[in-house]
């Protein structure tokens, strides 16, 4: 199992760099994961991450992209409530890249 070295601690990740143990996640680690992904975390990025984590806590899965889009639109203003904006935040895809930084497992299936 690959690991990443974070503050002297070995953290288990899968081949794509997703955390294996969701409890390993904290905000500092998220910043570090974002760095690896070359994503500069802003408030907007955090909105996404926090929403994903809360949703996951409740439903054990990341939300549908459209739900996320709507939420971001609500919080950040309607002009930002679209998929394009999410891809601007997370060029690797709002589902996959944002989930990685949020410490959630990678969505599977035909997505």
């Amino acid at each position: 199992m690959p690991t990443i070295d974070f503050k002297g601690k070995q953290i288990e990740v899968d081949e794509d760099g997703y955390l294996v143990n969701l409890d390993d996640w904290n905000e500092e680690l998220a910043n570090y994961l974002a760095e690896i992904e070359e994503v500069q975390m802003t408030d907007a990025h955090w909105e996404v991450v926090n929403f994903l984590r809360n949703y996951y806590k409740q439903y054990q899965i990341a939300p549908m992209i459209k739900i996320l889009v709507k939420e971001i639109g609500k919080v950040m203003g309607p002009e930002k409530g679209n998929t394009k904006y999410l891809y601007e935040l997370y060029p690797g895809g709002p589902a996959k890249q944002a989930c990685k930084i949020a410490g959630l497992p990678k969505p599977t299936g035909c997505v």
């Binding site: 439903y59 054990q60 899965i61 939300p63 549908m64 459209k66 599977t108 299936g109 035909c110 997505v111």
Partner: peptide
């Protein structure tokens, strides 16, 4: 029951959302 691993409550929440949309 599905490739995503989406449990019943999540499915229902998702469909409720789509209804609202």
């Amino acid at each position: 029951g599905n490739n995503l691993g989406m449990l019943g409550p999540a499915l229902r929440n998702t469909l409720d959302f789509v209804e609202e949309e």
